[in-house]
Design a protein around this nucleic acid. Sequence first.
DNA 1: GGGTATTTGTCCGTATGTATG
DNA 2: TCATACATACGGACAAATACC
Lengths: 464, 464
Amino acid sequence: MIILDRESAKPLYLQIYQHIRDEIITGELEEGRRLSATRRQADNLGVSRNTVEQAYLQLCSEGYLENRRGSGYYVKHVDMSLLDSDTVSRKLQAFHRERPENRKFLYDMKYGNCHTENFPARKWRRAMEAALTEAVYGKLGVYGDNCGDWELRSYLADYLDRARGVKCSPDQLVIGSGTQQLAGILCQLIRPERCAIEEPGYDGVRHVLENHRIETAPIPVGAGGIDLAALRREKAQAVYVTPSHQFPLGEVMPIQNRMELLQLAEEQDFYVIEDDYDSIFRYTAKAVPSLQSLDRKGRVAYLGSVSKALAPSLRLAYMVLPPELKNRYDMWFSEYHNTVPSLMQDTLRIFMAEGSWEQHVRKICLANKRKHDLFAAKLERGLGPGFQVRGKGAGLHLIIESDHLTTEEMIVKCQQQGVNVYSMEKYFAMGSSRNLIMAGFGGIGAARIEDAADRILRALKTDD
Amino acid sequence: MIILDRESAKPLYLQIYQHIRDEIITGELEEGRRLSATRRQADNLGVSRNTVEQAYLQLCSEGYLENRRGSGYYVKHVDMSLLDSDTVSRKLQAFHRERPENRKFLYDMKYGNCHTENFPARKWRRAMEAALTEAVYGKLGVYGDNCGDWELRSYLADYLDRARGVKCSPDQLVIGSGTQQLAGILCQLIRPERCAIEEPGYDGVRHVLENHRIETAPIPVGAGGIDLAALRREKAQAVYVTPSHQFPLGEVMPIQNRMELLQLAEEQDFYVIEDDYDSIFRYTAKAVPSLQSLDRKGRVAYLGSVSKALAPSLRLAYMVLPPELKNRYDMWFSEYHNTVPSLMQDTLRIFMAEGSWEQHVRKICLANKRKHDLFAAKLERGLGPGFQVRGKGAGLHLIIESDHLTTEEMIVKCQQQGVNVYSMEKYFAMGSSRNLIMAGFGGIGAARIEDAADRILRALKTDD
DNA sequence: GGGTATTTGTCCGTATGTATG
DNA sequence: TCATACATACGGACAAATACC
């Protein structure tokens, strides 16, 4: 931004000239870039067009700029090898930091990725265009409901009841842009000093808690989910759990444990945050009803999202608040603007209204079941006795445990075969000595699953 | 969700039958709704299709359902006037809370609204379609950069430099879904115990601070913006200001005060949060460079958004972090997912890349200047000596102060004329006895401004 | 693909203050 | 003291290039 000093003895056109010349020399204005039109520049600076023109013409005559009638003034190439003052190099360093480039692998098995072959592109596009059209005649210009579009919440409440047994009115639903954002709101609603979390567990939410300066109490996870005896001893004011498919180990919390957890929540007066992130992907048994559906005392806040079923980049999640927390939300968040673009909300609403949502959920569940079965079978058959495949039967990832290779060794070997698999270290708040790697198959196309599995087998079975 | 008890003596088909019948009676399943197909329902419940069919047929024979071959089972009309048990009424109450209806006015002059006549619908749509097409071939399925799309940040850095004098590399930029969300992140980065705010000031951010349990210290606003002497005494660890156009009073912080504020920030070692929410709408003088542009010590975090220029419902904002805070962001927020849908980011990127952004900014500024001039002139000429019009020359709202009518009286009178104007009470953390109303003209079409102004004049000038 | 509105550089004249002779 | 030349700044009219439909 050019700042003019009208008191200065230096003429205005010279001030403009020098400023632009400096920017060209330092490289801030790159070769080929078009300058602001004289009129616009003049408006911005509050001077006459001719004043700007004078500066531009001066730069032209000195070879910094090139003028194209009817088009604009463009920066010409300047050989900077001649001048090399401190200022130049310092400025260059400040302004031209390069774009960070991350290494590419043939297959990236990052958890959470989601292959676009399954995305209902045509239907979604149609719904989005309808939403845009309807938005232009109205709600584009207003801040919507702070809880999210009422109709969308209505559809969601309906769906959640049928699919997950979640009983709620649309009033209890809050739309948000991701589990982490909603978890942040929950931190501010519940205000616990200590929150129990699963160990290992979802690091995304752990960081949210820590950033809200809430002490986290990692509770080990057993075959039945979080260890309830340990939880009882912790006496935390909240607990974050993933009962339908424990992240990342994959255990399902049995009904007895669920009842016991709710009982404990009532006894010790804490809130349960139920993250149902993965629940639609169950490939063996039928779906387990949510914790929330068993809750009679209003101790459960339920979290869900469309990231896994549709696409993570849509950034649309929802939570069901028990009445007490909803009251606090209405009190403390009434002046908040909902963070989800109305276009996204409307698109999903239209998508759900025409029945495409449930259709898609069914379809993608099947697609992932096929991928899962293929992937699991290949790995189980192919890996020798020194390996264990964990977390089968649900979700979008598998875990490989080795009794002789370290995590680091496994990752490097897989990467050498072009497959990027991941350490599970970050899911352990207190660290772990187990040799685990995580392979998410959500982002791999159905046709490539076998190849990816083969490469992993090749990587892990080589002796060296 | 239907939960079956396989241990029970009650037959499975009866359990299903009763559950659905209850839902129909309570109204949870509305007339005309299609039930899940028997195959799907059977899969979900883990029973045979015949079991489900048995239940459905029973319901048909009792008149609850209607079966259409090749289509499905549909809920028939049920006369509920006959039955009226407690259960029914309780359930009805719980599930069918009515959609909240808010009263409509001819003109809603809520601050922040934004008329869609100014929205570049065609260009935006085109950019969005391009973004969707490009997304389907890739990044739809992945969680993007936690700071936001790199290219978009690059364009933004460029624009901010030219338009607002903000000097930053794309690395310092963080994309977020609204000023409040970004302010929340700043709370967690700066972690102040006390934060000074303007009095009156933007309540949205005040609530964010309070919800992060940060004590707020309201500092009065004078002709030159926030009162620096009072701020000095406060000894807060952060201050939130709107220097380019104080919200809501409209004062511009002069250059001396800006320097002094930065000086003070250095002396007392606090951070300045600069919210540049409105800066493009200056109708008289040329734009004032931002505080950030004067900052040499890395004490300023700069906030901006596209809500006012494009549309509030897009939910896209950005902040420029000084290096120290950016380091903390990289440390503490590395595992966060960005909350802005990549589709929105890509759309804006494409929109900016083709130059439409700056073109639009200029256009909308002119459009709003016309509206502002018309509105201000009408009010100034029409209102009698007992009224003052404040906040002219910039922004998207005007303030009317009365020396004989209370705020409440003014609002009611205007509403009677079909114009909804707003109290400014919520902007005063400590309350105010002044008689002020706020009229935002952003959401009113250019052709309607005069009528809206006339109605306000009629409302306020009637004697009764 | 061709007509049209807009954007853009270009050129013109004018006003003002200052230095010069 | 006055006339002149020059530098600086401003606004309007025109034509070429461009974007849009």
